[in-house]
């Protein structure tokens, strides 16, 4: 065995290199989750709400420069909901209420009654949330 002994030169240790990967993944996820939570709770300056799905604004309850409490109604939106009934697809128009997720203050309202909105496109409301809560 003249040239090289792979058992000694360490080349074969490639085999053993990923034993702790599962733990590494868990540590990585913990870091990501903590970063997202801390960012949303303490760092993000304002929250811009967009439509959760395509639809039409039915009413706007939020008023600019007022405080809102967790659970307060912000606006209502009419969306098409697909439901299966007896194996058949039915499309129904339903009005969904969007509530505040945390205490905070409404900074501005750009949504108007009757607006047609696209999912995640236009900004509807801008909120400032109480620090330490998850908006």
């Amino acid at each position: 065995m003249a040239q090289s002994d792979p058992k000694k030169c360490g080349k074969m240790t490639v085999f053993r290199s990923d034993r702790h990967e599962d733990v590494a993944a868990m540590v990585f996820v913990t870091l990501v989750v903590v970063t997202v939570l801390v960012y949303m709770a303490y760092i993000v300056p304002t929250i811009t709400l967009k439509a959760p799905s395509d639809g039409k604004i039915v009413s706007v309850a939020a008023v600019a420069d007022t405080e809102v409490k967790k659970g307060d109604l912000l606006y209502t939106i009419e969306v098409k909901e697909k439901k299966y009934k007896d194996g058949k697809l039915e499309e129904k128009l339903v009005v969904k209420e969007i509530h505040a997720k945390t205490n905070g203050k409404v900074l501005s309202v750009s949504a108007k009654e009757g607006d047609e909105v696209k999912k995640d496109k236009q900004a509807l409301l801008v909120l400032d949330h109480e620090k330490g809560t998850l908006p």
Binding site: V29, V33, L37, M40, I47, L49, K101
Partner: peptide
Amino acid sequence: VFVIGFFGMTALSSLGMLGAEGSSTLKL
């Protein structure tokens, strides 16, 4: 072992520690 992490995340979300459904936090 990573499956334990998966269930850990389920536990956190069941306890509501990752934000409410429909919240900007969950969206991010």
